[in-house]
Design a protein around this nucleic acid. Structure first.
Lengths: 143, 143
DNA sequence: GTAGTTGCAAATCATTTGCAGTAAT
DNA sequence: ATTACTGCAAATGATTTGCAACTAC
């Protein structure tokens, strides 16, 4: 059993929740899919192989995955909540092309330090941050 | 007539739209209210003095104000779209207390430069950015 | 066996839209 | 006179929830 699945099962056990077939399937699908899918998109993918899994179950399970730290929620321009695998300590940010929707991830030590500094300056205890850059990717600039 | 109202009227004229009593009232209320109100909150404030102004009109007018650059849309943790006066070139970010909801604004030259650098490194043309820090304000830390 | 889960449909919440009447140009 | 605007109620889209049947423990 993969480390992530183990993490999920342990979280479920600790909270008196059950490991069900659907939860296993949805976790699998989430891990194998491209990042930044919405619950709806995941549901649509799932439906091919498992037409009996309900919409609501996907929503509920993604919420669980977010709670136990396996998935991280994201909100980009559109209305939907998107999910990406959350590798604990890895702070990365997003560059989003407003024309083609491409999403590029990046990290930056310096930015992270600066944000921490700013929070401290205001005597805030920093829990998490959201940083997104919107613009045009190289391809869309030339069109 | 204030500069902002003038800006609004000019925008309306240019787009063959009309200066109506409701639009004037909503603009006034927006300018006099605390920052970061949602359309609903603005509607509720308005209703005391002007019970005949409809929900939809507030939504439509806030959208207009955003289009013409008088208001800027913001999305924090909750579901609602919030608006703040948009003083053209002023890039500022937000520190949000997850316990009491307090919102502190801040600016930082260094961050701005870094973001620009990062975008350039990926050959993106940066249009706009979103940066929010979530945590606990000094007061809520001690509770 | 008991308590948590599922799938469905109905509910919710923020926001948008159609429409008949009203007001700005 | 035109054309845009308003208020209302009904529609929308993403997400949540109530509930009776079901399944993991």
């Amino acid at each position: 059993m993969g480390a992530v699945k183990k993490q999920f099962c342990e979280y479920l056990a600790k909270h008196n929740l059950k490991v069900t077939r659907q939860r296993e399937i949805i976790l699998e699908a989430f891990l194998q899919s491209p990042s930044h899918l919405s619950a709806e998109e995941l549901y649509l993918r799932l439906r091919k192989e498992h037409p009996n899994i309900g919409y609501a179950t996907v929503y509920r399970t993604m919420k669980l995955l977010a709670e136990c730290g396996i998935a991280a929620q994201r909100h980009f321009g559109d209305r939907q909540t998107r999910y990406e695998p959350s590798t604990s300590e890895d702070h990365h940010y997003h560059l989003i092309c407003e024309s083609c929707g491409q999403i590029v991830e990046f990290e930056d030590e310096r930015i992270e330090q600066l944000l921490q500094q700013v929070a401290s300056a205001h005597q805030f205890h920093l829990n998490h941050q959201r940083l997104e850059l919107y613009g045009l990717c190289p391809k869309c600039q030339t069109r």
